[in-house]
Simulated scan of single mutants.
Amino acid sequence: MLRCRLVYLLALVGAVLFYIFFNGYLSYFVLIFALVLPFLSLVLSLPGMCAMRAHVEIPLTAVVRKSPFPVQLIVENRTPFPMARARIRLRYSNTFSHEETSETVFMPVFHGKQRIEREAIAQHCGKLLFSLEEIRCYDFLGLFTCRHRAPKPKELFILPHIAPLELALESSSTPDPESDTFSTEKPGDDPSEIFGVRPYREGDRLRSIHWKLSSRTGDLMVKEFSLPICSSALIMIDLFGDTDMLDGVLDRLAALSHFLLENGLEYEVQWYDPNAVQLRQVHLASFDDLYALLNQLLAHPAPKAGLSVPECRMRLGDVKEYPYMFSITPQHIEELVSGTVWEEVP
């Protein structure tokens, strides 16, 4: 833009000098034309400059790292007036790994929609934000500019690579009175949680009768209490370090989680949160729970340093035992109860 203004300024100086040193209508018309030309360019360009819109489209919501995915830049001109040039700057940022990069696109904008397609590959896990940092339009001479407000960023979760994993584990259905997790298949004797309501059967205890519901239905209805269960496994992860270390931890977490869920084993995932200065723990019983956990972990910046979960549990005096206890580091998966170590996930 600065170059265009300098060129126009030199042309205007030349028109003025031509008018001063050469008498006649020609020099007069040249000067008038040089003075009017920028405003004429602005008038012809203004409809397209004001009506132009741009946004990013990502057909997917999640993709596995190191897998290609499409990114589309959509530029639309709603008027029949063309626009000489638009400058659009895209920024790609990974909120989990703190990586950022940008790209600037210059293009003419004609009537209708124009698509610029890119194929991208994310090397690290995280939540990618695709934002239009700058949308700037220029008139035909490049003397005037119009800047548009950027739309909201688009999000894409980059998930860890899931490798097949085979372990010799069995499900544990042992009730745990201190557990906050309840069975979804069997009733129990814990009155703090209602499993369901059913018609009264001979031998049911009177204290289990749901009196309010029975008065509304006219039949005796009985409350079934829930069965607190013990999770089959505890997975402890070191969620801190550089991007390569974090990728290794998340890859192993995904592989182990898929194996447990495919074999019907519920489990807990535990990690240290340095911002809250405490251990975080989540119960997982389905693949939806797993993807919700990954989205939760990847949506926030990963700390560079922290405490390992076994060390933190030792400091807190947490001695709760599980049938299987796994410690995941960037280098291996260790089953603490048996002492088995898996150095590599196939």
Score class of each variant (00 low, 15 high):
88 I>L: 13
88 I>C: 03
88 I>W: 02
89 R>M: 11
89 R>K: 15
90 L>A: 08
90 L>D: 03
95 T>E: 15
95 T>N: 12
96 F>I: 05
97 S>Q: 13
97 S>K: 01
98 H>S: 15
99 E>Y: 13
100 E>S: 09
102 S>F: 13
104 T>C: 08
104 T>S: 07
105 V>C: 04
106 F>I: 02
108 P>H: 05
110 F>R: 10
111 H>R: 14
113 K>R: 15
113 K>A: 08
114 Q>P: 05
117 E>N: 12
118 R>S: 08
118 R>G: 02
118 R>D: 07
118 R>A: 11
119 E>W: 11
121 I>K: 11
121 I>W: 04
121 I>L: 14
123 Q>C: 10
123 Q>G: 11
124 H>S: 09
125 C>L: 03
125 C>G: 06
127 K>S: 06
127 K>D: 02
128 L>M: 14
128 L>A: 03
130 F>T: 00
130 F>S: 07
130 F>A: 12
131 S>L: 10
131 S>A: 13
131 S>C: 13
132 L>R: 00
132 L>Y: 07
133 E>T: 13
133 E>P: 04
134 E>A: 13
134 E>P: 03
135 I>C: 04
138 Y>G: 01
140 F>P: 00
141 L>S: 01
141 L>F: 05
142 G>R: 00
143 L>F: 06
144 F>N: 05
144 F>G: 04
146 C>G: 04
147 R>N: 02
149 R>L: 07
150 A>D: 05
151 P>D: 08
151 P>F: 08
152 K>D: 14
153 P>Y: 10
154 K>W: 08
155 E>G: 05
155 E>Y: 12
156 L>H: 02
156 L>M: 06
157 F>E: 01
158 I>Y: 01
158 I>Q: 03
158 I>K: 04
159 L>C: 03
159 L>Q: 00
159 L>A: 04
160 P>E: 01
161 H>T: 09
161 H>A: 07
163 A>W: 01
164 P>W: 01
164 P>Y: 03
165 L>F: 05
165 L>E: 00
167 L>N: 01
168 A>G: 05
169 L>P: 01
170 E>T: 14
170 E>M: 12
170 E>Y: 11
172 S>I: 03
172 S>A: 14
174 T>K: 14
175 P>F: 13
176 D>N: 12
176 D>V: 06
177 P>M: 11
179 S>N: 11
179 S>V: 10
179 S>R: 06
180 D>Q: 12
180 D>L: 09
181 T>D: 15
183 S>Y: 12
184 T>H: 09
184 T>A: 09
185 E>V: 13
186 K>P: 00
187 P>N: 04
187 P>S: 07
188 G>H: 04
189 D>H: 15
189 D>Y: 09
189 D>P: 02
190 D>L: 11
191 P>H: 13
192 S>L: 14
192 S>M: 12
193 E>H: 13
193 E>I: 07
194 I>W: 06
194 I>P: 00
194 I>Y: 09
195 F>M: 11
197 V>M: 12
197 V>H: 13
197 V>G: 07
198 R>T: 07
199 P>G: 09
200 Y>K: 00
200 Y>V: 02
200 Y>R: 03
200 Y>Q: 03
